[in-house]
Design a protein around this nucleic acid. Structure first.
Lengths: 302, 302
DNA sequence: CATATGAATGAATTTAACTCATCTATTGGC
DNA sequence: GCCAATAGATGAGTTAAATTCATTCATATG
């Protein structure tokens, strides 16, 4: 299927419709000479004369008359389809699924900057403790904590979560041994795994298992555990990224290490959809926020 | 109706069909980069993303899926129509209407040269003493003797007919006065007019009316008049172009002048038709034959 | 982990499209 | 009949679009 140069077809169709090279040129915003050249080229390509030239007039040949309606209808269909697609409403909204704590602690404090950078994008946050199936259409993208696998999705790693002991400065803790006289604040993870930040695991990493007190308090909501720590009721093992504001305010301190590694946060999306551009813009913005955030803990490698 | 650049539409259709820029490039005999550029240009022109890019793969968006069948069907229809026109039998035959004497005396002796130059053109001669209406489809072209008018036709002048006294050399005529002892051979013209070559007219032009004998023979077929002249039966007023061969063979001589002017021969055609190219080729060949023919009579002008 | 695969980007190159100048053959008005 | 207007043709020169080349990126595969 080797078509003649398409410009020749277009020139022919216009000239045939107008029965005039001059008027066809006017419509296509070129000189009549250009039309003349194109039609001559088409005739040479096909080896068939399409117009009979008369002084000041052109007349379609039989072959020309056979071709004209095909091109006329084809180009009309092209134009119609193109106009339809051009005028289709472009979605400027994206819905992002986020776990509540991340929304509250990491995302919301930063959102003014996204709005300033993308004033035309309508961002909707869909919070859920469970991972949302993006194929379901509930959300266009998600910020997920875990190891995936993100099969069939585009996944951008944001950063790796880390957990350290955090407590109120009024407790006066200085070193791991001080934990013997403290209360451990536990959080019940929905899905514990190897990377779940438990005090037991921390104790092993810190080689401080025998400093761990037997007494403690458990919470089902991690924000409650944080509140208790701020209130001086104990020491919580939590992510400093999520409590950056409280640390900056002096409500919480990191008395000692080490940090233990958790999973990574990923920004994931389907890689498709009419608002892909906006979805990707949000991801790019997240990436820049991660890159520009000052480290809270000295990185020991990853 | 402003369409995007047509090359972009073609690249898109091929990429959509193949679901691969690489394979589309192969089909269109360009590099994959060219496809990538074209599709990007189309997306920018429309302001809509048409493909979702994945590593090593592209997937049509909704908008892309909407456009694809329109272009697929349109270009397929174009290709089909073009192939049909390309393969249509091109007429390689032309029918030329000619008066019998011209066919016999001027055209036929020269035809081998036309055949040699245009071996693929089938020339059919349609002889008729009457002018044929070319719109009737009996003939594609005609060689006509007269002044026209050739309204609505393309007319190329071939040469102006001339008439001189011609006779057998055995008659021994040397000057107009010798006509007194000769027999005049007359031809009955179908449509006499001012330019009809009669002996009476010749006599007036030659200022030799009083040399003209009263006796003569009339023929209804000009070829018979020529034959009689060759046989030595008299003097005929005829066109030397039509008897060039007999002059060259010494069968006829032009004992004296002057020549009188007749009408012109024209090659005429409609200027249209599938075999216009061949019709025009025949006209061009006639023109070259006329140009290359050595003059028989010294031209006195016109 | 190394390699293969295929799309993206941007500068450089190539090519096709287009313009300009001129010519030709009417056609229409005076 | 003459002359200006009209519209298509031709070919060289110019311009803009198409294409390539070099390089990068993100997987996917062995």
């Amino acid at each position: 299927m080797s078509l003649p140069p398409l410009a020749t077809l277009r020139a022919f169709e216009a000239a045939a419709r107008h029965q005039s090279f001059k008027n066809a040129a006017s419509e296509l915003a070129v000189t009549p000479t250009a039309i003349s050249h194109q039609i001559r080229l088409l005739e040479e390509t096909l080896g068939v004369r399409l117009f009979d030239r008369k002084p000041r007039q052109v007349v379609l040949t039989e072959a020309g008359q056979e071709l004209y309606p095909v091109f006329r209808d084809g180009f009309a269909a092209f134009a119609k389809a193109v106009d339809r697609v051009r005028s289709r409403p472009v979605s400027r909204s994206i819905t992002v699924s986020v776990i509540p704590s991340f929304a509250a602690k990491w995302l919301l404090p930063r959102l003014p900057r996204f709005q300033a950078e993308y004033p035309g994008v309508n961002l909707r946050l869909h919070t859920s403790p469970e991972a949302v199936d993006l194929a379901g259409g509930v959300a266009d993208a998600a910020i997920r904590y875990g190891v995936g696998p993100y099969t069939g999705l585009v996944a951008h790693k944001m950063f790796r979560e880390q957990f350290v002991p955090l407590c109120s400065p009024v407790l006066g803790l200085k070193k791991p041994e001080d934990l013997r006289n403290a209360t451990l604040l536990h959080f019940d993870w929905l899905r514990p795994d190897d990377a779940t930040p438990t005090w037991q695991r921390w104790g092993q990493v810190a080689d401080a298992v025998n400093h761990l007190p037997s007494a403690g308090i458990s919470f089902s909501d991690d924000s409650h555990a944080i509140q208790a720590a701020i209130a001086g009721q104990g020491v919580v093992l939590a992510s400093p990224e999520m409590v950056r504001a409280e640390i900056d305010a002096g409500l919480l301190v990191m008395p000692f290490g080490p940090e233990i590694k958790g999973h990574c946060y990923h920004y994931v999306h389907t890689g498709r959809g009419d608002n892909l551009r906006e979805v990707e813009a949000f991801g790019a913005w997240i990436e820049s926020e991660v890159a520009s955030a000052a480290p809270i803990i000295e990185q020991s490698g990853d």
